[in-house]
């Protein structure tokens, strides 16, 4: 059909420019140009430049020379870097599990008949909409060592004697930033999974119930398989953006106390921008790439994607 239309003489465009603009190849090229220029110049090129910088000793204000894998060798000796790798993996794993467990629960709750359903769904998304840094500042204040509202409440309830030093000790600090990350991630997961849940026909649940399936069996054998396609996409996104998270840590702890909550992204920033060691920072950032590819492949292919689950045919 396209070819017939294309073979017809261009009636309304007799000029050379008009004919050129109706040429599919030329037009495609012109239309792709703005996006391609911006993406190649500010995404693809810096990606390569970052890998290259990781092999140099560039500092702010001084062009670097090629030093091979020296940056990586010194990073492997660096206990702060190794701690940041450990923190990043811990942070990603715990926060992702928390986000998906709670997000799925919230999605299932929202999938019921509820009064003011639209309104509830709207306010549930709020934590995800507002700037992360600004809500992180609110968490910073909630975790304050002297005036923490959580400590105050727990103390009034008689559960603790002393105020919790949320951000002053390594493990409480890790738990605090993970909790803030989960808080921010739940809405995204819940709303996406809710969209998936709404496409599951209730007749499947009825059929399962008639066959004598319990609540758990209905969840395990109807809900979970039907949700898998959307779950795998949401999981991939969530893992990538949790792994490379920067804002929450930078706003709440800046990597402290004594570097114990540094993630790879915050460490890269600290070494590169305030520290001036652009080469070393770029090496840390580049070191994230293999982890990212691995986690993406695991979350994307680890969960089977079958077309029939989306209403298409299996092939």
């Amino acid at each position: 059909m396209v070819s017939i239309a294309d073979r017809l003489p261009a009636v309304s465009s007799p000029t050379a420019l008009g004919r050129l603009l109706d040429n599919r190849i030329f037009l495609s090229f012109t239309f792709m140009l703005p996006a391609a220029v911006l993406l190649l110049l500010f995404l693809t090129y810096p990606l390569g430049l970052g890998v290259w910088l990781g092999f140099t000793d560039t500092k702010i204000g001084r062009a670097g020379v090629w030093i091979g894998i020296d940056n990586y060798l010194s990073l492997f000796q660096d206990s702060v870097f190794r701690l940041s790798v450990f923190n990043t993996i811990l942070y990603t794993t715990v926060a992702t599990v928390g986000k998906f467990a709670l997000g799925l629960w919230l999605a299932i709750l929202l999938n019921n008949h509820l009064p003011f359903k639209g309104f509830i769904r709207a306010i549930v998304l709020l934590p995800w909409i507002v700037p992360t840094v600004l809500s992180a500042i609110a968490f910073w204040w909630i975790y304050d060592s002297q005036f923490s509202i959580i400590s105050y409440t727990l103390q009034r309830l008689g559960l603790i004697d002393q105020y919790i030093n949320f951000l002053g000790e390594p493990n409480p600090a890790r738990a605090s930033v993970i909790a803030a990350n989960i808080w921010r991630g739940i809405p995204f997961v819940a709303i996406c999974l809710l969209a998936g849940l709404q496409t599951i026909s209730p007749s499947l649940y009825e059929a399962a119930a008639l066959d004598g399936a319990t609540h758990w069996q209905r969840f395990r054998h109807v809900t979970v398989p039907m949700l898998m396609p959307i779950l795998s996409v949401v999981l991939t996104f969530s893992v990538i953006f949790t792994f490379t998270d920067f804002q929450l840590i930078y706003a709440i702890t800046r990597g402290g106390p004594v570097n114990t909550t540094h993630l790879m992204a915050t460490l890269a920033f600290q070494r590169a921008i305030p520290g001036g060691q652009l080469g070393e920072g770029a090496a840390i950032a580049t070191a994230m790439i293999p982890f990212l590819i691995a986690s993406t492949l695991i979350s994307y292919y680890g969960i089977q994607r079958r077309k029939w689950q989306q209403g298409g045919r299996d092939d």
Partner: peptide, 9 residues
């Protein structure tokens, strides 16, 4: 591609 690995270059 996350911004965290692009901001230095």
């Amino acid at each position: 591609v996350p911004p965290s690995i692009l901001f230095i270059p």
